[in-house]
């Protein structure tokens, strides 16, 4: 990973408001400090093993046959390609689950990014009666634990499902479809709205006024000026939501019944139940670990590409504390 390249102050120009963390702190160290530094780096290298070895173990175990999964060898004694078995499991369409997760995640992230930007821009730029009241409402919803709205939301989708079944000319939406997993994203999300509003507030107002002078409508000003300038905040929103959907187990558990509709985390959970020893399986752990690797790798790829935005996004969250 090209992490060191991202550290230079040059990256600061791409996104003015957040990249403080990426800059090296201005510290001059004496020669005595040098020896100390070597000690700290050695210590960190040791700790890194603790943080990374589970992944190394997972990759290694994914290429071992059933009776060697737990031998804890770094290099498999017998090399076993378990992925044909994983992708060919009866009643466990792993490839479909992977595609379902990708499609739901992308759609949900696109929706929440665009709509949240629209709302965030309205709160940041426009002056209108009721703004403070509405913004207070928005902040209040951020504190709300999800469980309080979970059950009635489920019932809404259940009723929608009944209704669309009775009226066959309507597309079937409701429980046991994938709609409940991404449609709510198209109503924006308080957390991202707050994050992006902070970003929009950092953009000089004159830029927008100038566009208005040029005869832009409000919406085209938003699209032509605000969105391009807010790109770092939009990317942070997008990857955070991709991650949230890729992690989510509870919503798919609640809404999906048909195996073909499952997302990858739910699919891997059923594989664990079926092949693990806990649920009465035979302990075919080579399948479980290989499937778990398939669940883990896409996030690693996304992180490798967008590393800077993950770190900046998290650091910004803390700064508003």
């Amino acid at each position: 990973m090209s992490s060191t390249e991202n550290l230079g102050p040059a990256t600061g120009s791409a996104s003015a408001p957040i990249p403080q963390v990426l800059r090296e702190p201005p510290r001059a160290r004496s020669a005595a400090g040098g020896a100390k530094k070597v000690f700290w780096i050695a210590l960190l290298a040791g700790l890194s093993v603790l943080f990374l070895y589970p992944f190394v173990w997972l990759i290694s175990a994914s290429f071992k046959p059933q009776d060697e999964v737990f031998d804890n060898r770094l290099i498999p004694r017998t090399f076993s390609w378990n992925f044909d078995e994983v992708f060919g499991l009866p009643d466990a369409p792993v490839l479909s689950w992977l595609l379902n997760s990708l499609w739901i995640g992308t759609l949900a992230a696109l929706g929440v990014t665009f709509v949240s930007a629209l709302v965030a821009f309205a709160f940041a730029y426009f002056r209108f009666p009721g703004r403070n009241l509405l913004f207070a409402l928005l902040l209040a919803t951020m504190m709300l634990p999800p469980q309080v709205t979970l059950i009635p939301t489920y019932l809404i989708w259940n009723e929608l499902g009944k209704f669309t079944t009775e009226h066959a000319w309507l597309p079937h939406i409701g429980v046991n479809t994938q709609y409940p997993l991404w449609v709510p994203n198209f109503f924006g999300s308080a957390f991202y709205i707050f994050l992006q509003r902070q970003f929009f507030l950092g953009i000089p107002r004159e830029l927008f006024e100038a566009a208005r002078m040029d005869g832009d409508s409000y919406f085209s000003m938003f699209r032509r000026i605000a969105l391009p300038l807010a790109k770092p905040a939009l990317i942070v929103t997008f990857i955070f939501e991709i991650q949230a959907k890729w992690f989510d187990l509870m919503s798919p558990l609640i809404y999906l019944r048909d195996q073909a509709l499952f997302t990858l985390p739910l699919g891997i959970k059923t594989i664990l139940d079926r092949f693990g020893t806990g649920g009465g399986g035979e302990g075919e752990w080579q399948i479980i670990v290989a499937a778990t690797l398939i669940l883990t790798l896409p996030m690693v790829v996304i992180f490798a590409i967008f590393q800077r935005y993950f770190i900046e996004g998290i650091a910004t969250q803390g700064r508003k504390g």
């Binding site: 943080f51 990374l52 589970p54 992944f55 997972l58 991650q243 890729w246 992690f247 187990l249 985390p265 891997i268 959970k269 664990l272 778990t292 669940l295 883990t296 996030m299 690693v300 996304i302 992180f303 993950f310």
Partner: peptide
């Protein structure tokens, strides 16, 4: 990196 590991994994 552990932070990007899905909870199920």
């Amino acid at each position: 990196i552990p932070q990007i590991t899905p909870p199920v994994a």
